[in-house]
Design a protein around this nucleic acid. Structure first.
Length: 383
DNA sequence: TTCCACCAAACAGCGTCATG
DNA sequence: CATGACGCTGTTTGGTGGAA
């Protein structure tokens, strides 16, 4: 019975790939979040060693690409690029797509000079431009901060060169929680912080200098990474321009993390609609805590839809790797590994290996009275 | 240059209250 | 009464900046 095997501490290997089974998937001593992997806050990223190790383990035909259907920050795309492979990432969240694009595309323009010009423009127009309507804005941003942020975003949006504009938009997005009243990125509570208008300009300027170093030193003649900002459940095979030779992803878990919520004000400021993202976000808590709420079965059906798409765009015998942990709905532990494997099986993706992994303690910890998920699985499937 | 005190930032929930 | 919006929770860790 498959289910009992999931709960053992042993690696389940039905047809072991030696380099995968012998690897220590806990990657002791490795840190996540340097250089390109640290451009912007993003919750629950997987560490870059996971996609890197997986990519090296498989033979990927030259005329195919690596796909991440829930690309988020773009860790898979960055890893693919650094190892010489083209990649495609899909994500519903426009902030995620912005991060993934900026970190994989060339931005050879002078970031710091442009940032300085934007700051000058913003200072010159302080109080002269009328604010957009954003719900509850005063609760989360002090008035002077609002003026500085909106001045900056207005100036940035006037930049013509697309990659440069994206880069500065991302830099501004990355500092928004710091200059807001929000406690921290993953702690959605208003507190009083001693931030002033000029801090917005100085922090933005500092971040742009960091971007300059990171983006310049790491982007020359790298393979292409294509980022598609779309609900994966509405993606058709024709949206994916290449045959896929390998899938690496970590899907959202039911009722776990709400990405839309923690990027809500970033989306408002950058002109996206967070409510639309919320409505379609797989796993968002609102779907699980209302009348006629979603169930784990709904999650399985959504995943099956994803595998249906994958079966059409992946080449025969290609591998699909998913990193998943469990989650909790209405107090009940949900075995997401089982749901995902079941969904995959219905679209003829065969389970090959389950590699258990300890979630390192340096992910820090929520209130210990809350139940913590300490392990996750890397599931290897094959078409 | 090294060390250490200090602090910001991070964390795959849950509770409560105002509103319709 | 259902819903949505916001408040609240503690601890670890890496980085920073001043003192030794």
């Amino acid at each position: 019975m498959l289910k009992t095997e999931f709960h053992s501490n042993q690696t389940v290997a039905f047809d072991p790939i030696p380099s995968l089974v012998s690897c220590d998937w806990n990657f002791p001593g490795q840190r996540n979040g340097e250089g390109l992997y640290n451009l912007h806050p993003y919750p629950a990223k997987f560490i870059s060693q996971i996609p890197k190790t997986l990519i090296k383990a498989f033979n990927i035909p030259k005329d195919t690409v690596i796909l991440d259907p829930f690309c988020g920050y773009g860790t898979t795309l960055i890893a693919a690029q650094s190892l010489g492979y083209s990649s495609i990432g899909v994500d519903l969240n426009p902030i995620a797509c912005l991060i993934a694009r900026v970190s994989t595309q060339d931005c050879s323009q002078n970031i710091v000079e442009s940032a300085t010009r934007c700051i000058q423009k913003a200072k010159a127009t302080e109080g002269l431009i009328s604010m957009p309507y954003i719900p509850n804005l005063d609760h989360w941003f002090k008035k002077p901060i609002q003026i500085a942020v909106f001045g900056l975003i207005t100036a940035i949006n006037e930049i013509e060169e697309e990659n440069l504009r994206d880069t500065l938009r991302l830099a501004l997005s990355s500092i928004l929680v710091r200059v807001s009243n929000q406690d921290s990125d993953t702690r959605y509570a208003a507190i009083n912080k001693p931030v002033e208008k000029n801090d917005v300009y100085s922090i933005f300027s500092r971040v742009c200098q960091q971007y300059m170093q990171v983006l310049h030193s790491s982007q020359e003649d790298y393979p292409n990474a294509f980022v598609l900002n779309k609900n994966i459940l509405e993606v058709s095979p024709s949206d994916i321009p290449s045959k896929v030779g390998l899938v690496i992803s970590s899907p959202p878990y039911p009722a776990a993390y709400e990405y839309w919520l923690y990027h809500k004000y970033r989306m408002w400021w950058l002109g996206f609609d967070p409510l639309l993202v919320k409505e379609h976000e797989i796993g968002a808590r609102s779907h699980f805590f209302k009348k006629d709420h979603h169930t784990p079965k709904d999650f399985e059906n959504q995943m099956q839809k994803v595998f249906k798409l994958l079966s059409k765009i992946c080449i025969q015998n290609s591998y699909a790797c998913f990193v998943v942990g469990n989650s909790k709905i209405h107090g009940e532990i949900i075995d997401n590994t089982e749901l995902l494997v079941s969904a995959a099986a219905q679209e003829n993706f065969e389970l090959r290996t389950i590699l258990p992994r300890n979630i390192p303690s340096n992910r820090k910890s929520f209130n210990l009275s809350n139940s913590r998920i300490l392990t996750e699985n890397i599931i290897i499937l094959q078409k």
